[in-house]
């Protein structure tokens, strides 16, 4: 009797053990599936660099284009979004355009293209940019104009914020010639930048 009772108890414990084992096995499979999915989610981040180019100064524009051309050379997909003061860096010498008085006034006050941008430090009434351009040439640093050409060649996309252009009275007809240069708003920027790994504000 005692022996039978002992065997029953052992059977019950074995059954409980089997059930627990099956439970644990199911849990392990579940966790394995979850961990297999986790790195995939991280890899889903696109190899992109998105730059918000805000500043209308030569030094910051140089920094933006060094990053853009460097990233494009690394095989990254690069988008530059020009907004506010930086849009003036994309102007070329303005042709006769129909503008309101206020737009005309902005046009006079804003730099006419990258060549006319001031420095954020040591501008010295326009002497600074001339000096930095001279030093850049001397030290083999590509000029902003050269980097714009390289960016075009490497497929860097340039977007210009239409709201800034409206505010500053800038017209599409006075922007530089750049392959695929397009005009957009914040939604287009966010849609482009959101899946990317890297977004910087310059």
């Amino acid at each position: 009797m005692d022996g039978d009772h002992g065997t029953d108890a052992l059977d019950a414990r074995l059954r409980a053990f089997d059930a627990e084992l099956a439970n644990l096995r199911a849990r392990v499979t579940e966790l394995q599936a979850a961990s297999a999915n986790a790195p995939k989610a991280a890899q889903g981040q696109e190899d992109k660099l998105s730059l918000i180019v805000f500043s209308g100064t030569l030094d910051r524009l140089i920094a933006a284009f060094v990053l853009a051309t460097g990233a494009a050379a690394m095989g990254m997909q690069v988008s530059m979004f020009f907004t506010f003061w930086a849009t003036a860096g994309l102007r070329q010498d303005a042709r006769q355009l129909k503008k309101t008085l206020l737009e005309r006034a902005f046009g006079w006050m804003l730099p006419k293209g990258a060549r006319r941008l001031p420095l954020s430090h040591m501008n010295m009434a326009g002497g600074g940019p001339l000096m930095i351009r001279h030093v850049m040439k001397q030290k083999g640093v590509a000029s902003v104009e050269e980097m714009m050409t390289l960016s075009a060649e490497l497929g860097v996309s340039i977007y210009v914020c239409t709201m800034s252009m409206d505010l500053l009275g800038m017209k599409e007809a006075e922007m530089i010639e750049y392959p695929g240069l397009s005009y957009c708003g914040v939604a287009k920027f966010l849609e482009t930048a959101a899946p990317g790994k890297l977004t910087l504000f310059v």
């Binding site: 060094v66 051309t69 460097g70 494009a72 095989g75 083999g140 640093v141 590509a142 490497l154």
Partner: peptide, 14 residues
């Protein structure tokens, strides 16, 4: 030679 960042890698990529 004589060229500064990012030109060496940009030219290499090309």
């Amino acid at each position: 030679r004589g060229k500064s960042c990012p030109l060496p890698i940009v030219l290499t990529a090309r």
